[in-house]
Each structure stands twice: as structure tokens, then as C-alpha cells.
Design a protein around this nucleic acid. Structure first.
Lengths: 227, 227
DNA sequence: GATGTAACTGTCATTTCTTACAGGGCGCCG
DNA sequence: CGGCGCCCTGTAAGAAATGACAGTTACATC
């Protein structure tokens, strides 16, 4: 029974729970950002954070989500990143600002789900640099946390991205060969059906996926893990 | 200095190293399977295993890679799977055969990389079922192992799938909007260039990606993580 | 100044896709 | 048996993509 003002499960709620765990690992702040793959041109982003409110305001105001070197790194690699106030490679003004809010030393781990969703877990603190011993001790835990957060966040209302009407076997086949660059004629030969029927199935895919054309249908099916 | 008969780093070599670790966790056998996303219609599969040779022969002979419920599960979900001789939901003849080779109890963890590569780490043994305590104790380690194997295996010669010639900024932009279902005309409006120029960039993408048409170019770029 | 790269624009012929129309056959299930 | 889902096929017109031709402009580097 939801009470007045009870927003239900949310990313922020998850992150508040996460904080209790990361605090035991010796970090003051933590955040989790999940970028879902759709819509393709402007992916949906969900996040929660326990960083200082003033820093968050600043972060949103200057659209740092698009610029943050950490986020860029997470999208481009599977490897964890540790940063300190000396390890500044790009955007020095960004790091200076972060420092001014007491975010001096941190650690970020990314996770990738089967739906191409990308998650980024970050923890940070003011004083102690992240030691080599700490890295070895906690890397596994952080990976585990990132993985768990990813799984839970993907289930949150408003975050899940599933297909209403599932594709039939034939539809998946036809779309798969389309993704492989085959024309309707070629697919007809491969599947031993007329090219007209191939077109028919592709059109059903386009409709079911809510796509504008074959290319978008293939892209959506790929990121939804249907192929 | 490679010696005669030295095949260099290989998946089987990685798995042999993995065995030393999983043996400490109490499992006789282990395997790792990595499915790379390209080619789209017939993804490349690389694997190594310490399961009994007779079982492997049987496995390959009957094309179990396509049928194995564990593999199906790994491709469809992010969750780990534990199986015992009683937890048979599909393909009973498959599980019976596995048991006949002493593969009674096992555990599988999947991992997903940013390039849509899917890895599956399995460990198994003959006698002891996997206990709840063991699950709690080792889930983190197995996830870590799967993640590490994924990273290392992706670097093996013959496994890595990278693009020779990188896409320019404009090319990525144009391809992204194509993936979002926009026509050349629409993209021209969005980017404030002529539709002819949009076509020009798309053609370069098609050439660089070695694709047959726009649809395949988008699909390849997506699975390569270029968008 | 020369070189190279990225971005940009045009026309034209051909191929492919997209969308609309109108159906038949098959198997499953209530 | 009727309904439903899936699979299959045809025609035709208009929209879009493809491929090959031939260029200009801007910018960074050497």
C-alpha cells in the first residue's frame, strides 16, 4: 500500500542502500548511473547519487553527464578507473570543480548488460587516495556491487525497456539476415520463400518494434537482444 | 620467442589457468565460451574446456552448443545458474548424457562486454551439490573470474573484432541518426547539411565497415560499440 | 607552400525499400 | 466448428537508397 509521498522503488532509493555498503568500504559518496540503449539517438539515463547537492546541481547545470571523462570512459571500456587529484588527463576545470566539493579520490566500475545498457558505479572520498592494497581487496566487491545494481536498476519501473509484442521465429530470422546486409531477394533464396514474403515479415517487425524503417527495426532488435 | 609447437596464447591456455583457480573452489571441471557478435548471422564462437574429452567430442558431434540449455540461458539473461541432477527443465537426454560423464552438479555465470560479446563460465563436479553457503561464498569470485576471462579472451589473437579504419565524428553522427530510423533528408535537416552529404557519409561508413548496405553498417557499428 | 583529411555538394541511372491493396493454407485450441 | 496466430504470395506506385561520375572549401600539419 503506497502512502502519500511514497514514490515507490527508485534509483535514488537503490543508491541510498548502496551508500550503506560503500561506506563500509571507506567511501563517503557513491553514485550509480544507468544508460539504457533506447531511444537510440538519445539514450535514456537514470541515476542516483549521494554526492553533495551543490555539486549535483552544478553537474546538471553544466551538462557534465555529456562531458564527464569518467562517463566517457565507462562507455568506451570495461575496465575500472581509479582517479586522484593528480591523475587529471582531460578537462582540468571539471576535476578542479569536483575537488572544490571534496571529491578528491575515487573509483569507478562499469557494467554492461545483455541489452546494451551501461551502468557506472562510482565511489569517492575527500582524504585518502585509493591504495594498491585497497584495490586488490575491494575490486571484486565493487564489480559485484556494480553488477547487482545493474540488475536491480533494470527492473525499476520506468527503466525497463521490453517489447510489448514478441517477434515470431520467422520474423527474427528475416530480421537477422537483414542485419547481415541481405536484401529481400537474397533472404528469400536463403529461406526458400518469395521475396514478397520476406518483405511481409520485415514489415511486421517494423510495426511490432515501432520503428520507422528496416534500419531502425534492426537497430532496436539488436539493442533489445532479440537477434 | 615462440618455440616449435608453441601456439601462443589461446583460449585453451586461459582455461587451463582458470582450472587451477576453480579447483581451489572445489570443482573438477571448468570451461569458458565466448561468443563474439560478428558476423551477425553466424557469430564467432571461441572456447576452452577441461571437461572430459569424450564428453567434448559428443558435445561437438551433436552440435550441443546450439542446444545446451545453459548456453541459451546465458544468452538470454544476466543471472547465474546452478544446476544439479534434479533440476532438469528441458532436454532431459542432454542432462542424462552429461551425468554419464560425471557432470552432475555445476554452476554457470555469464558476462556481457560492451561489444555485445557474451561469455559463459561454467564449473562442474561429480559428487557434491552446490550448497547455499557455497553460493554465497563464491558468487562474487565466479563473477570476477567470468569478467576477467572475458577481458583476457577478448584480447586473444583471432578473437578481437575491431575496426581497421575508425569512423569520423560526422560518420558516427549520420549513422546514429540512421539507426534511429531517419532518412537522409531528415538527417540533412537535423545536421543542417544537404541530404546528398548525408548519403556521402553513409557510403563511407558502409565502405569502412565492410557492409553491404546501410542496414548492415548500422548493425555492425552497434555491435562494435561505435554508436 | 604542399599535403592530407574531413566535410561538403551536385546529377543521374539503377536497385531496393516501403506501403497500399487482396487474399490462401496450416495447425492449435476452446 | 470457429477463431486465432503464423506463414505464405501476388500487383503496383511512390519513396528512398545505392553507386558512380565530378568537383569545392576549411583546417591542421609538415
Amino acid at each position: 500500500m503506497a502512502r502519500l509521498g511514497d514514490a515507490g522503488p527508485s534509483m535514488q532509493g537503490l543508491v541510498l542502500a548502496l551508500r550503506d555498503i560503500t561506506a563500509d568500504l571507506g567511501f563517503e559518496h557513491c553514485s550509480y548511473v544507468l544508460r539504457q540503449p533506447l531511444p537510440i539517438a538519445q539514450p535514456a539515463i537514470h541515476w542516483g547519487s549521494t554526492y553533495p547537492q551543490a555539486w549535483l546541481d552544478r553537474y546538471m547545470e553544466r551538462n557534465y553527464l555529456e562531458l564527464d571523462p569518467l562517463v566517457q570512459r565507462a562507455l568506451a571500456s570495461d575496465l575500472p578507473v581509479v582517479w586522484s587529484d593528480r591523475s587529471i588527463d582531460r578537462l582540468p576545470e571539471f576535476w578542479e570543480e569536483a575537488r572544490s566539493f571534496g571529491i578528491n579520490h575515487g573509483w569507478a566500475v562499469s557494467s554492461h548488460g545483455r541489452d546494451r545498457g551501461v551502468g557506472l558505479l562510482t565511489v569517492a572520498r575527500r582524504n585518502e587516495p585509493v591504495s594498491a592494497h585497497e584495490l586488490e581487496q575491494n575490486e571484486m566487491r565493487l564489480l559485484w556491487l556494480a553488477h547487482s545494481m545493474h540488475g536491480m536498476a533494470s527492473l525499476l519501473p520506468g527503466v525497463a525497456q521490453a517489447l510489448l509484442e514478441p517477434l515470431s521465429l520467422r520474423e527474427r530470422e528475416v530480421l537477422l539476415w537483414s542485419a547481415a546486409g541481405k536484401t529481400a531477394d537474397e533472404i528469400g533464396l536463403i529461406l526458400a520463400i518469395s521475396s514478397r514474403t520476406v518483405t511481409f515479415h520485415i514489415n511486421r517487425c517494423i510495426a511490432k518494434l515501432g520503428a520507422a524503417n528496416k534500419t531502425e527495426a534492426v537497430a532496436k532488435a539488436l539493442v533489445l537482444g532479440l537477434l
